[in-house]
């Protein structure tokens, strides 16, 4: 169903006229800088609340390092980001942003929030994905099983606003 919806969207010439619509296509592309900048706002609602600046690790395999650097640049001053490849240790990071098809679910430490694209979230390899909508609003998608498995919890007010999977 979602695939059908996305295919249809690809065919919309309107997306070419309204560039904002292009970012409403969450599953077709890896996490980009603007999407990651929205996603890390979820960190403000983690329980317990982490200190600031919050350490973030961006995992990008070879060939994706430019994308990783772009994400790092896009993140605000509330976080300190490090770009690593999937072989690296993730210790110390409050959240991990995965670029492309990297799977860090097996090596993430307890309490680490794994952020990825919609495919990653739907597969349960990531706990959180963000869909930036054409209206300018953001929709947070949470894989509740992945979230529970990671031992991560959000403020209940935020939890009730996300789209749970």
């Amino acid at each position: 169903m979602r695939g059908l919806k996305l295919s249809a969207r690809h065919g919309l010439s309107l997306a070419m006229l309204l560039p904002a619509l292009a970012c409403a296509d969450p599953a077709s592309a890896t996490v980009d800088g603007p999407t990651a900048a929205v996603a890390v706002k979820a960190i403000n609602f983690l329980q317990p609340k982490p200190g600031k600046p919050t350490p973030i690790t961006i995992v990008a395999d070879s060939g994706q390092s430019a994308a990783g650097d772009a994400i790092k640049t896009a993140l605000g001053a509330d976080v300190t980001a490090t770009v690593v490849n999937s072989g690296n240790d993730l210790a110390g990071a409050v959240a991990v942003i995965v670029v492309g098809g990297v799977d860090v679910s097996a090596k993430a430490a307890a309490g680490q929030l794994i952020i990825g694209d919609m495919a990653c979230m739907e597969a349960g390899k990531c706990a959180l994905a963000v869909e930036r909508q054409a209206s300018g609003a953001a929709k947070y998608h949470v894989n509740t099983a992945a979230l529970a498995k990671a031992g991560v919890s959000f403020d209940k007010n935020f939890q009730m606003l996300v789209t749970a999977h």
């Binding site: 706002k41 609003a137 953001a138 935020f158």
Partner: peptide, 11 residues
């Protein structure tokens, strides 16, 4: 936290 939630959700 209306401020933080509005910032996150864009509305």
């Amino acid at each position: 936290n209306y401020t933080a939630l509005q910032d996150a959700f864009g509305q």
